[in-house]
């Protein structure tokens, strides 16, 4: 534990500490002679900032759509892979393949798929005699489209983790249960799911954290549009800190996002923990 703790302290805790201080400063990279302590003003400003709330709504929409769909589909994929009679390794590798591509490249590809007038999807729909869809140009359509692309990109990884957990269940335990006359259902509910629970907790929590921090996919596909409907909190933070160079304000918004994620993660932890017993 010690070597990791050392690295963690140096490269995580120190920068985090700096970031915590920043949140209470007026810190503009382009005006370094006017850096000063401003108390909670940045937090105050954020709570009054309509764009911040809008960004939160966008992030929240992504989380609500993304987390349940990736957990459920990944679980299905893991069970599916586990039950396969042949070709399991091939299918696992193929599912995993999209996630190996850089998100920037994945974004280029999907932007072309989704392009409303000149893209691949609407071209295909047209040939099937169906009306074209406003994949990324409609405010209600854009976020689900981004979720689909994210699923394509991220599902393989999550499934592989769950499959590893499934296969790690010692065969002896399952065999013993079958000998005791347990059916498929009982096996699933009494043995498999309870043993899977810690890993499931890991999957749910990390995917929730990841979804709350979504940035790459909407940034590449829509730049946050239409009308900022898909500009999430992290993109807004990024623009504040690195396009407007207002590090202090960006840090304050990061801590507000942190607080929200922490509440969610805690609830999930309690819930998945308690139902284990």
């Amino acid at each position: 534990m010690a070597p990791y703790a050392l690295s963690f302290l140096t490269f995580v805790i120190v920068p985090v500490g700096v970031a915590l201080v920043l949140a209470f400063m007026q810190f503009d990279l382009t005006a370094r002679d006017q850096i000063q302590y401003v108390g909670v003003r940045n937090f105050d400003d954020a709570l009054k900032d309509a764009y911040f709330w809008q960004a939160f709504r966008a992030t929240f929409a992504f989380v609500v759509l993304m987390v349940p769909s990736i957990v459920v589909t990944a679980l299905a994929m893991a069970f599916g892979l586990n039950a396969m009679t042949t070709g399991r390794n091939t299918v696992r590798a193929l599912l995993f393949l999209p996630g190996m591509f850089n998100v920037a490249v994945a974004g280029i590809l999907w932007q072309w798929f989704y392009n409303g007038q000149f893209g691949l999807f609407n071209f295909a729909l047209k040939h099937l005699g169906l009306p074209p869809q406003p994949w990324l140009s409609d405010r209600d359509f854009a976020m689900p489209s981004i979720v689909v692309m994210s699923l394509w990109w991220g599902l393989g990884g999550t499934s592989v983790i769950l499959l590893a957990a499934l296969q790690q269940i010692p065969r002896a335990i399952l065999e013993a249960a079958v000998l005791d006359g347990a059916g498929h259902r009982a096996l699933l509910h009494r043995i498999t799911l309870p043993l899977l629970r810690p890993v499931l907790l890991f999957i749910v929590v990390t995917n929730t954290i990841g979804a709350f921090q979504v940035f790459g996919q909407p940034f590449l596909l829509t730049r946050g549009g239409p009308e900022l409907a898909t500009r999430g909190v992290v993109q807004y933070i990024y623009e504040t800190a690195f396009n407007n160079y207002r590090m202090g304000y960006g840090a304050a918004m990061s801590w507000l996002l942190f607080a929200v994620i922490a509440v969610f993660a805690l609830v999930q932890y309690r819930f998945l923990r308690r139902s284990a017993h």
Partner: peptide
């Protein structure tokens, strides 16, 4: 603490890390 640290947006680390 480790899990909590994952919840801090990574963009925030960039400048302190660069200076370090």
């Amino acid at each position: 603490v480790v899990v909590a640290s994952m919840m801090v947006p990574g963009q925030l680390f960039l400048v302190p890390l660069y200076l370090m």
